[in-house]
Design a protein around this nucleic acid. Structure first.
Lengths: 244, 244
DNA sequence: ACAAAAGTGTTCCTAATACACCCATGA
DNA sequence: TCATGGGTGTATTAGGAACACTTTTGT
């Protein structure tokens, strides 16, 4: 009796002969606004979880890859082209019962988008709208399905990834100051970082390039930096920027 | 027209109303034998890819979690209980066309099993059998579907994970010598490690306990070690055991 | 002149690396 | 006695972490 389902797997089969779960893609879309980390959520209008906030997502169509499905969702929600957007498969959640209606297996992706590229519709803080950017620190209490779990998993992954890669850059517009970058890292990691160590480390990675521009406003103008090439996913040493 | 598929997603729906992909779980099962890293493969008897080697896998049943499906496959293939076996979701592969018959999305898991716990049936090197442990260095040329990609992805992940965690221990039997452990790390990482540094580092992790036993055989007997508690997944510093 | 953020160097310390010889056993 | 793998310690170095003051601008 061993290798029972293996036998099933090996056999040719009629695609319609088994009862099957549905497959969706859900998207945890992060951006940085007001120096804080935001996630895009959508208010549900239907049961179940009507009125609750949910991650954007949808069915995987028969002729598209999972990445394509995720990119399609991304474009639909933000209006930005998924070109150059950092998109990474997060995890697949498939517990029976995570959707009260049927078995739905969802492949979660997380995306890091540059807030300056987002269309006005979604950028606005219109409370009336059913699409909103939530600060990760102030998530709604009622979230649909297991979306809170997915979201927390994504935050954990992002935080972790931040400690040994430069993905944080993906969240910022083309030009930014080092203080903005540091501030972003601080809000995501939830701790103060040392300014000198942070600068030393990020600059020593050699992926940032100072521009001619300065960010004026308030007091002493800050030099603007940009990525050297296209968006990098350069890896650096797995350490943290300790202390403040 | 934006949020089209979101609408679909939010709406209650009849589970049978959409065309859906099938969902399987595939398993990359690693073990350590003869100081080399092995993977379990199964020879297919049917088209497509008849005669090619494939990862064990099967359909996800409607009432089980993905982990349960993976554990079920594991038990079916090895005869060991999945209790205490390291099992981790690897990645979900879903390109249309990866299975020539229908759209099949597969959630790949990787498992680290202690070779001493495996039932004789599968342990034997019986060439006639359609189930075999392959050394990762000598994979068959013809592998079914995208299973070679999945396998390579798994090896990469394992190798990477080895550099900052103690998962390697999961591959060994309860008692082992430090040389066996080092030798395993060396074959997985594909490089020589320095004996003194390796010992210093693993022992300083504090998760190993010397036993009273010695491994006799050949020459000077080696002290046997075991894990302190249950199987740990302790993390240590992300560095390598450089040089030999 | 003062408030506020930008910018900059050095010391300390931990941890990784490189490296070579003696030990216990079986044949 | 010799061949084989087991076992051990130290010096060097690289990189992370801690830490405080000067500069530039706007008001």
């Amino acid at each position: 009796m061993r290798r029972q389902s293996q036998k099933e797997f090996l056999e040719g089969y009629d695609a319609s002969e088994f009862e099957r779960p549905s497959v969706t893609v859900d998207l945890v879309m992060f951006t940085a606004m007001d120096r804080s980390l935001k996630v895009l959520l959508i208010r549900r209008g239907q049961q179940p979880f009507s009125g609750s906030w949910a991650l954007p997502g949808g069915f995987v169509e028969m002729e598209e890859t999972l990445e394509e499905a995720a990119a399609r969702e991304l474009e639909q929600e933000t209006g930005v082209s998924a070109e150059g957007v950092y998109l990474e498969q997060l995890y697949t959640f498939g517990d029976p019962g995570r959707d009260p209606r049927t078995r739905v297996i969802t492949v979660a992706y997380f995306a890091l988008v540059d807030s300056s590229a987002i269309t006005p519709k979604v950028t606005g803080q219109e409370e009336i709208s059913d699409v909103r950017w939530f600060s990760v620190r102030e998530l709604p209490k009622d979230m649909a399905f297991d979306h809170r779990t997915i979201l927390e998993y994504a935050v954990k992954r992002l935080r972790n990834k931040l400690e040994y890669t430069a993905v944080g850059l993906e969240l910022l517009p083309d030009q930014f100051t080092l203080s903005e970058l540091q501030s972003l890292y601080e809000t995501i990691l939830g701790e103060k970082l040392d300014k000198r160590n942070f600068r030393k480390k990020t600059l020593s990675m050699g992926i940032l390039q100072p521009t001619k521009g300065y960010r004026k406003g308030g007091h002493r103008p800050a030099m603007l930096y940009q990525f050297k090439d296209a968006k990098p996913s350069s890896t650096f040493k797995r350490t943290r920027f300790e202390r403040g």
